[in-house]
């Protein structure tokens, strides 16, 4: 929902803290995901993620969430799906060139990032979207990547 999306970006700090508390839990649940099977967990978790983030951020389920690096303003709502900052067509009032009645996603993102502790992540160049991941759960991917890289580190240490 548009108004909720704006509200979320304006309270980016709260959502940053919430996610910081939430992420380790999802990662810790790795044994559970593994026993259920990541593929089978995908459906309920994907649904849950779509519901929560869809409501709050108008999440488009790109499957490679960058909200932490975009001031909690989902860049997939930009009509040009810009992942790295605003285009040059932003209107003087901070609205979108394509939808002049709506705020530019990146104007919101910049303002949101200034409220976050890790807001400088907005200055990091993001990779282009991997379209194969569309519709999949970013949360599960984070859990899997974090535990797998942890396992690799442990093996390397041995």
């Amino acid at each position: 929902m548009y108004s909720l999306r704006l509200w979320a970006a304006r309270h980016a700090r709260v959502f940053e803290l919430t996610y910081r508390a939430f992420e380790p839990v999802v990662v810790k649940l790795h044994p559970l995901w593994k026993s259920v099977g990541y593929r089978r967990a995908e459906k309920p978790m994907g649904k849950l993620e779509r519901l929560c983030k869809g409501l709050l951020f108008d999440c488009q389920m790109c499957g490679q969430c960058a909200l932490s690096a975009t001031g909690m303003s989902c860049s997939m709502n930009c009509p040009k799906t810009m992942r790295n900052g605003p285009c040059g067509g932003v209107l003087q009032n901070g609205n979108c060139e394509v939808y002049p009645e709506k705020r530019c996603v990146w104007v919101e993102a910049w303002e949101g990032s200034r409220k976050m502790r890790g807001g400088d992540a907005i200055r990091v160049v993001q990779l282009p979207v991997d379209h194969r991941l569309k519709g999949s759960s970013s949360w599960l991917r984070v859990a899997r990547d974090a535990s797998e890289s942890g396992e690799r580190h442990r093996e390397a240490a041995r």
């Binding site: 040059g88 209107l91 990146w106 910049w110």
Partner: peptide
């Protein structure tokens, strides 16, 4: 690359230039 220093978000524009140079 192109840049537009004349439109919002003005505070982000130089950082965006930095990103483009890094890219």
């Amino acid at each position: 690359a192109a840049e537009n220093p004349f439109v919002p978000p003005h505070g982000f524009r130089p950082h965006r230039l930095a990103k483009k140079i890094a890219a």
